[in-house]
């Protein structure tokens, strides 16, 4: 069976997408197909890349500067040729309650085995306010109802992004699935599944996270250049979840003694 995060992305009506794309293609001057948050990130990120590229002065530096220039164009005009070519439009609203429109986002699936019963792990995770204890990109999650919560996540350059989320599927001790609601800074959806490992070896925890990165796919690529790799991030979140559940705390050396490092 496919994960709930996958299935919810297929809920939307695809005809809206096509309409938007057709409209963009038919206009003569470069039309706006990039959302406003994304345009800002494109412009700022593009400028940073351009400056970085120029300062290197090498052939690779010139290439980086050119990419930066392209991003500035994209940010200031709101038009992305790449998006046009792949029929993506992040400027024009939502599509029938879909959190992450089909195949346009980033999807990460990871799993880990934890030496604890599923019931214990489920109970901890089900209280979303615990999530920032092991998901480092989260600043806070506030539970506002049986199914609803408000999430604040860290974004580049000390900023934050926020969204409301609802639980769309749950089965005690087995599964929790959630997604962001209309008006989210970052559209996202996720699910976690708890399965008993063979031979009494604890519980296999399978997580699927899907999101539309701020700045689109291009933004995600820039983020990767600066070390924010979503696969690694989810893996580390799971590792910390395991540490917290198996040992009561995250393993750390932060704040330990060291020489001055001359």
């Amino acid at each position: 069976m496919s994960s709930p995060a996958t299935s919810i992305t297929n809920v939307g009506t695809r005809s809206d997408d096509k309409t938007d794309a057709t409209r963009n293609k038919s206009s003569r001057k470069p039309s706006v197909n990039v959302g406003s948050t994304e345009r800002t990130i494109s412009t700022v990120g593009g400028a940073a890349l351009a400056l970085y590229g120029l300062s290197r002065g090498s052939l690779a530096g010139i290439a980086i500067a050119a990419i930066g220039g392209g991003l500035i164009y994209r940010g200031t005009t709101g038009h992305c040729n790449v998006y046009e070519a792949i029929n993506v439009d992040t400027a024009h609203g939502k599509h029938g309650g879909v959190s992450v429109p089909g195949n346009s986002g980033i999807k990460v699936e990871k799993s880990i085995t934890i030496n604890k019963p599923a019931s214990e792990l489920y109970k901890y995770w089900r209280n979303f306010e615990n999530l920032p204890r092991f998901m480092d990109h989260l600043e806070s999650v506030t539970v506002s109802g049986e199914k609803n919560s408000h999430w604040v996540a860290k974004a580049p350059a000390g900023t934050t992004v926020e969204w409301d989320a609802e639980i769309i599927n749950e089965k005690e001790n087995e599964l929790i699935a959630w997604r962001s609601l209309e008006g989210a800074d970052v559209d996202n959806a996720g699910s976690v599944r708890f399965e008993e490992a063979t031979g009494g070896r604890g519980t296999v925890v399978k997580v699927s996270i899907e999101y539309n990165p701020p700045g689109g796919i291009v933004g995600a690529t820039i983020a990767k250049l600066f070390g924010e790799e979503p696969n690694q991030q989810v893996q580390e979140d799971l590792r910390r979840f395991k540490q917290v559940m198996e040992t009561g705390a995250r393993s750390t050396t932060e704040g330990q003694s060291a020489g001055a490092g001359r």
């Binding site: 009561g248 705390a249 995250r250 393993s251 750390t252 704040g255 003694s257 020489g259 001055a260 001359r262």
Partner: peptide, 20 residues
């Protein structure tokens, strides 16, 4: 401090970081 370079240093005293 590097290959063939170990030194006596004055560093901060260690602290409890986790309650275990």
């Amino acid at each position: 401090y590097g290959k063939d370079d170990v030194r006596v240093d004055t560093v901060p005293d260690p602290k409890i970081l986790n309650q275990s």
